[in-house]
Amino acid sequence: MWEYTDKVKEHYKNPKNVGAIEDADAIGEAGSLSCGDALKIYLKIDADGIVTDAKFQTFGCGSAVASASALMEIIIDKHIDEVAKVTNQDIADALGGLPAQKMHCSVMGKEALEDALAYYRGESIENKSRIVCQCFGVTEDLVREVVQHNKLKTVKEITNYTKAGGACEKCKDDLQKILDEELQKQGETSPKKPLTKTQMIVKVNNILENHIAEALRQDGGDIELIDIDGNNIYVSLQGACKSCPSSNLTLKNFVENVLREHLGEEVNVIEA
């Protein structure tokens, strides 16, 4: 069961401003039925640009209803210039926070709001941005915007905020690329991507050759890499090491420590 705040519960139990406005000045939509989330908002905007009324209809879970309901409270009686500045984080904050996996509900509120404002300004509401995630129809622009505004650092977070990459996972490489570019713009580097097995084998082999094997060879022994499985590195000790009673000590105290130091990871060295 999700840990919803009292504020979220209050909103989904008794959502405010539900319904449609017949003569709305702006209508915005986000999400789709197939994704399991859809939101439609209606705004009434007066001559001075003040949102005098706002209503919503949603197909979604508790946090989707709560996000929409909170959004309506945030924007009513505000000028559209101010409304345009509302972020998904503002929606989440108004609810006292949302579970990480439900942040996409607040983003959907923000998306529908942007759509409505574009409609009001008479801009084309056609989405020209490339769709990154086919499963949930998430565009590249949305991913970039969400990464920037919410200072996201991992692909998992992008999934929590936009649902992109949450189903078939085919777009995960794409998302990583976008994330890397965005982080580079911010002058940060993303957390290290785990090495592929081949990269890992090359790296471990280099460390064995340059920092370990020589010392063993001086004692008439040698070492060979057999396999790598996650954090487990399987090696075979050869020559004099093979029969050495302290070979286990060699593995744990020497080989493992040197590998950990150079890899910067908690690896286990196991004799194959």
Partner: peptide, 26 residues
């Protein structure tokens, strides 16, 4: 049809009714 399962479960839960859903949200 046209309404979401988690939302139904949450409302049922408030009435003391326990069931489950195949919706994505749950």
């Amino acid at each position: 049809e046209y309404i979401e399962g988690e939302l139904i479960l949450l409302h049922l839960s408030d009435l003391g009714i326990c069931a489950s859903s195949g919706s994505a949200c749950t």
